[in-house]
Design a binder for these strands. Structure first.
Length: 581
RNA sequence: GUCCUCGUAGCUCAGCCGGAUAGAGCACCAGAUUCCUAAUCUGGAGGCCACAGGUUCGACUCCUGUCGGGGACACCA
């Protein structure tokens, strides 16, 4: 349960009472009213702006309203003290007994602690990675993969039904290029020198594909014209690349529910249907686009083509869906794909790299048009990953051989560190990834800080079971044990931090911001480490106290609830909650 | 030229749908280990939240403009 949401409801009920007795007028706007942890803990446990928010329409002094509210709230058994502060805040201080019950809640709920129903079972389709099937994934894709995956897990935890989806761009000319590149590796496998013409993919990863082609076709393709083999080789190589990509994804713990092929849209009228849906709304027309502002391409000439009125939905200009020769542009199958997704899910999220930023408006426009003006698509851009080695930036280049793949990164630093590092940053902020830092000074990496907290708890639990010989240390019985010895300010502070977890999940899920989970876990770990170290000076805070079973069990309940929260959070981020370090 | 995005401590970044005295880590200074893992903890110092207006009880947060960094800009995907 999210105590802040709960108290917000309580406060709204108190406002209703004030309306009923005539203190406040009816029909007040309550949307802006909050109940949240105050920035400064000395202000109390929950702060509300309710009085200030209604003061103006009610034409009353905010402090007076706050005072009336406080009088009502002070009667609540969960509340120790309700007071007015500043311009009209109402601060609530909750009883220790109330906090101890929250601890018991966390223990009882276990893996479910923090789950919420904000998703209300709505089906969300999260599309991410969707890299062209022409080679292994690189670092840039890694960020998108990790972000999308954590976002999907987060939404799941918040009560959504989630589909993790990958759109395979296997319908365009880049897969022809792939086929031609693979064919050169095929020739090479048969003892001929490969002719890597300009524009082909020179990477080594196609060498085994060439060999596999020999296994499949022998030398039968060697002297045939391209038209005879292109289709087969294209399919073969695309499949091989998708296998490679699936392996790459699995190495960072990403498993997709759905791989959706662009090619499957062609020739079945799917694209035509989607375009027809837009045409019905009068959003398709023949026209000629203005030349682009600024630097004009040398070969620019006016061309009549089929256009979509995306500018009616917030795009800068209308966008072509057919080339002047009548074939589809890339945008057309993409519209069809999203049209299909809209029918399969309630909400869509696309995770794009920053280099696709220019595509956002038109895609949103198309979805808005197709869903009757509703905003059902959110697009998250992941900014570029800047690579550093020993403090110096280096650019990736296929030619120069400084192309860093996802596999390189995972082999060097491991999935946990990679995932946590990339998630302790907002998706739309650029990310500096310094190998030296992440790998050698790994003790400075926040992921270890959080994992260490979890490991310390596991260690204390082992000690309690082995040395102190305590029995019945499972969470269910700890939840029922006497927690009234939990009084120390630092211990209660940790309880309060744990009780914030459900609210954090909700906030992160509603805003599609998994990084908040990472930051929260860091804070939680910090509070835990602090309590741990206080045990040096304050023996009553040592988790395992010889001969004091009641005190020990109360503290074990506290740290187990901490471990549960850390573990639930790390599970969302896809990071292992280690038992020891 | 247009659009998107970012600008917060020396550095890397948080700051929740507008709330009270703007927070962490690193680096710097001073401390803690007969004690459950020191990959830890305690304290200090460090700020015109790029700049200028606007909206209001209140702005790091929302709006407009300026400056600065990054990205994208016809029938490529």
């Amino acid at each position: 349960m999210d105590i802040f949401a709960e108290f917000r409801t309580t406060i709204l009920a108190a406002l209703d009472m004030l309306v009923a007795d005539g203190t406040l007028p009816e029909g007040l706007e309550t949307r802006g009213i909050t109940a949240e942890p105050p920035r400064d803990a000395t202000h109390g446990d929950i702060a509300s702006n309710a009085a200030m928010a209604v003061a103006k329409p009610a034409k009353k002094n905010p402090r007076e309203i706050a005072s009336a509210l406080a009088t009502i709230l002070a009667e609540d058994p969960r509340v120790d003290k309700a007071e007015v502060a500043g311009p009209g805040f109402m601060n609530l201080r909750l009883s220790e007994a109330f906090w101890r019950e929250r601890l018991a809640d966390a223990l009882v709920q276990g893996d479910d602690f923090g789950k919420s129903d904000v998703g209300a079972g709505r089906h969300v389709n999260v599309e991410y990675v969707s890299a062209n099937p022409t080679g292994p994934l690189h670092v840039g894709h890694t960020r998108g993969a990790i972000f999308g995956d954590a976002l999907a897990s987060l939404l799941e935890f918040a009560g959504h039904k989630v589909t993790r989806e990958y759109y395979i761009n296997d319908g365009g000319s880049q897969v022809d290029t792939l086929a031609r590149s693979a064919f050169q590796r095929y020739r090479e496998a048969l003892g001929h020198a490969p002719e890597m013409a300009e524009g082909l993919y020179p990477g080594d990863y196609l060498i085994p594909v060439g060999q596999a082609m020999v296994d499949k076709w022998g030398d039968s393709l060697l002297d045939k014209p391209e038209d005879d083999w292109l289709l087969d080789v294209r399919n073969f190589a695309t499949d091989a690349m998708m296998d490679l990509i699936r392996e790459d994804l699995a190495s960072v713990g990403v498993v997709m529910d759905e791989f959706y092929s662009e090619k499957s849209l062609y020739g079945k009228g799917v694209i035509e249907d989607a375009i027809a849906a837009l045409e019905e709304k009068g959003l398709i027309y023949q026209g000629v686009l203005e030349p682009p502002k600024g630097k004009k391409p040398d070969d620019w000439e006016p061309r009549e083509q089929t256009l979509f009125k995306s500018s009616e939905f917030g795009d800068d200009v209308d966008r072509p869906i057919k080339k002047s020769d009548g074939s589809w542009t890339y945008f057309a199958p993409d519209i069809a794909y999203h049209y299909d997704k809209l029918q399969r899910a309630d909400e869509l999220i696309d995770v794009f790299g920053a280099d696709h930023g220019g595509y956002v408006k038109r895609m949103k426009a198309a979805c808005k048009a197709l869903s009757g003006g509703e905003e059902r698509l959110d697009i998250k851009l992941t900014q570029l990953v800047k690579l550093f080695e020993n403090g110096a930036e280096f650019k990736m280049s296929k030619r120069a051989g400084t192309f860093v793949t996802l596999k390189d990164v995972i082999d060097m630093v491991g999935p946990d560190v990679t995932r946590f590092s990339m998630l302790t940053r907002k998706n739309d902020a650029p990310l500096d990834f310094d190998f030296a830092k992440v790998k050698e000074q790994s003790k400075d990496n926040p992921v270890y800080y959080v994992q260490y907290a979890h490991a310390r708890i596991c260690s204390a639990m082992r000690k309690a079971a082995n040395e102190a010989g305590l029995s019945a240390l499972n969470d269910a019985s700890l939840a029922k044990s006497d927690l009234s010895t939990l009084k120390h300010e630092a211990a209660l502070g940790l309880v309060k931090k744990i009780a914030e977890w459900p609210r954090q999940v909700r906030g992160a899920a509603e805003n599609h911001e998994p990084h908040r989970i990472a930051f929260y876990l860091y804070d939680l770990a910090s509070e835990f480490h602090s309590v741990y170290n206080l045990g040096a000076k304050n023996p009553e805070l040592r988790f395992v106290q010889e001969g004091k079973e009641i005190e020990t069990k109360a503290l074990l309940a506290l740290i187990r609830a901490t471990a549960i929260t850390i573990s639930n959070g790390l599970r969302i981020l896809g990071v292992t909650p280690v038992q020891e370090m």
